[in-house]
Design a protein around this nucleic acid. Sequence first.
DNA 1: AAATATGCATAATATTCTTAAGTATAAGAT
DNA 2: ATCTTATACTTAAGAATATTATGCATATTT
Lengths: 118, 118
Amino acid sequence: MYSPELIKGTLQTIVLSLLSENERMYGYEITQHVKDRTQGEIQLTEGALYPTLHKLEADGLLTTEKVSIGKRVRKYYRLTENGNKQANDKVNEFRRFSETMNDLLNSFTPNPELSWLS
Amino acid sequence: MYSPELIKGTLQTIVLSLLSENERMYGYEITQHVKDRTQGEIQLTEGALYPTLHKLEADGLLTTEKVSIGKRVRKYYRLTENGNKQANDKVNEFRRFSETMNDLLNSFTPNPELSWLS
DNA sequence: AAATATGCATAATATTCTTAAGTATAAGAT
DNA sequence: ATCTTATACTTAAGAATATTATGCATATTT
């Protein structure tokens, strides 16, 4: 697992991009999808995911539909047009950001013994 | 500029990696260095940077020395041994994370018109 | 029958950042 | 000379976002 600070700020990007590939998904499905696709390296917690989904819905980027599965109710999320635009923007931004960061860290070579260490 | 959430959690990584390349640096120098090297795409704010430097020092990852420049006092930061280890760890972690994320977003192709949009 | 998996929600807390204000010296422009 | 911008550090208030924990309930596996 990655230290949690790193994942911060990428949750919306992850959710929107997954919903761009899949017509509709529900919360639990999203957590499993991410876990599987990252070999367990990114595990979304419910306490972070659900509030985020609610916020994206409130912002008009997602719509919901409830579907009964037996006695349980599943809540599916689907992108709006605006949500799709945001998905494009967010994913592109992350890719640019990750390049910028890697450039910035590029001159860095792990060195266990720097001469000037105190 | 990137949306601030994205940069969250990378500040320590940035600071530690820069101090791994440069024997010692002071706060303002770090902000300028990052700004220059990222073409202004990442601009550290003082309100974020200085508390972080103080925390890293409190955690024993950095040491400080004050140097008088005329009437002003400049505070230089330098890695400790532990700080250097953390620098290695943090940079490696970010690189892995950025790969994981890019894999996760990989199947994503920007598409302005998904058939199922609501 | 018990344990695990599925499924959603929210409150309390912690972390980390933004924004803003305060303080002060140095350098460049008008 | 004076004003503006750059240099340089600090801290407080507030916002945003996540962690941790709790609660509730059904379904499946052992």
